[in-house]
Simulated assay, not measured.
Amino acid sequence: MDLYDIRREYNQGGLRRKDLPENPVQFFEHWLKQAIEAKLPDPTAMTVATVDENGQPFQRIVLLKHVDNDGFVFYTNLGSRKAKQLADNSRISLHFPWHPLERQVHIMGIAEKLSKLEVMKYFLSRPKESQLAAWASRQSERITARSALESKYMELKQQFDKGEVPVPTFWGGFRVKPESFEFWQGGEHRLHDRFVFQSELDGKWDIERLAP
């Protein structure tokens, strides 16, 4: 299979300094809104990158569940590989690939565990099937077969058929406190537009353009 000639032009528009507000979260929300309005599949899907104790990077797709000036929120099993790695090294990277809009956003920062109240509030808002799945799956642990997972799910479905599903003690979430943002907009002839926001001690953001 020859991959050399697989390419396309990026011509949906550029990105200029005058287009950027001083607050990168505001601009992220603007782009996210456009991704949702464009009906992109999974517009809140983001790649979450962590590293293990040996410095080996790991990536996986997670759904963003909330964003504001305090950070980016996602939920997970606290026994999962990503949660264990964040317990040892809280540095984290997020990546939003909005390919149909020829855009990417890259965020680096520190992950902090959410409070029990925040976790409970979100868990109780989930569909019951998702609540049961959280109980059934010991995320990242080895299982003998899919049938074992499905059997556990059905057992829990019968157990909680008439009542509420409690929040598992091993389930929680993280808030990513951003330290830098990079906004990437595809450009013609591979002359892409890239801008980096870097946090400063006074709470403001330094903005620089990067070569593509």
Rank of each mutant, 00 (worst) to 15 (best):
I6C: 11
I6N: 15
R8A: 14
E9F: 04
N11P: 07
Q12G: 06
G14V: 08
G14P: 13
R16S: 08
K18C: 14
P21Q: 14
P24L: 11
P24W: 06
V25H: 08
V25R: 01
E37Q: 12
A38T: 11
P41V: 07
P43W: 00
T47Y: 02
A49F: 02
A49S: 13
D52C: 14
D52P: 05
I61H: 08
L64H: 10
L64P: 04
N69T: 13
V73C: 11
R81F: 02
L86P: 03
L86V: 07
D88K: 09
S90I: 08
S93D: 10
F96M: 09
P97L: 10
W98D: 01
H99P: 01
P100A: 09
L101R: 11
L101C: 00
L101V: 12
V105M: 00
I107A: 03
I107G: 03
E112Y: 01
K113I: 10
K116Y: 07
L117R: 01
M120R: 07
M120P: 01
K121S: 10
Y122W: 15
S125F: 13
Q131G: 15
S137A: 11
T144Q: 08
A145F: 15
S147Q: 06
A148T: 06
A148L: 11
L149E: 02
L149R: 04
Y153P: 00
Y153C: 01
E155P: 15
L156G: 09
L156N: 05
K157P: 03
D161K: 03
G163C: 11
E164H: 03
V167L: 11
P168L: 01
G172C: 02
G173I: 03
K177G: 00
P178N: 14
E179M: 07
E182I: 03
W184N: 01
Q185Y: 11
Q185G: 09
G187T: 04
R190V: 08
H192P: 05
D193C: 00
V196T: 08
V196F: 06
F197L: 00
L201E: 14
G203D: 03
I207Y: 01
R209L: 05
